[in-house]
Write a protein that binds this DNA or RNA. Structure first.
Length: 178
DNA sequence: CGCGGGATTGACT
DNA sequence: GTCAATCCCGCGT
């Protein structure tokens, strides 16, 4: 199947809108010839200067430079000494917004994900688990997600607004697992 | 089933 | 030196 990555224009829009439309989209990772993919079911928007929880809140640093660049790039962050988290840069160039991929439902390559995770259950139901299952580390930080190589996102399902749960904090969206 | 704590690296104050 | 966009295990209810 030909890759049909979401274009740069998709990511350049309002960050919360991007976070909502990523729900139901398919995250695809090609690693050593294996294709691993899953449907995105949980995202969280980080609104830069308006969000004290965002890494960009206190300004640009070498670590978060990707956030200040153009939309449609990966921002991969290492936390707690042992976990990686996958974000997608959103909003126009210079606006340091991002969408965190919190959870997916595995579709292809479950066997490889199980090997990476060292377990057969709860493969990708948390942001650090997604990275571990898909073999994502900081070598993919700043990756162009519109290339359709190694790591990208495609439109798949369209989730009706009435099936999206919005969490109590502004900028956090939850989707029903089913 | 819910809560609490430990793991462990690195960026920033 | 501090603390972080988390996970997992063990314990108590």
């Amino acid at each position: 199947m030909e890759p049909r990555p979401l274009p740069c224009e998709f990511y350049e829009r309002d960050t919360i809108q991007v976070a909502r439309e990523l729900l139901g989209s398919r995250l695809i990772r090609v690693e050593e010839g294996n294709t691993l993919s899953g449907t995105i079911i949980e995202t969280e928007a980080y609104l830069g200067f308006d969000d004290s929880a965002s890494h960009a809140y206190r300004g640009k640093t070498p670590r978060n430079a990707v956030l200040f660049g153009p939309a449609g790039y990966s921002y991969i962050y290492f936390v707690y000494g042992l976990h990686y988290l996958l974000n997608v840069s959103a909003a126009p160039d210079g606006v340091p917004h991002a969408v965190l991929i919190r959870a997916i439902v595995p579709i292809e390559g479950m066997d490889v994900m199980q090997a990476h995770r060292g377990t057969v259950r709860k493969l990708t139901d948390g942001p650090a688990k997604v990275c571990q299952a898909l073999g994502i580390s900081r070598t993919l930080n700043g990756w162009d997600l519109t290339l359709g190589m190694e790591l990208w996102i495609e439109k798949d399902l369209t989730i009706p607004a009435d099936q999206i749960l919005v969490g109590p904090r502004i900028g956090i969206d939850y989707a029903l697992p089913q």
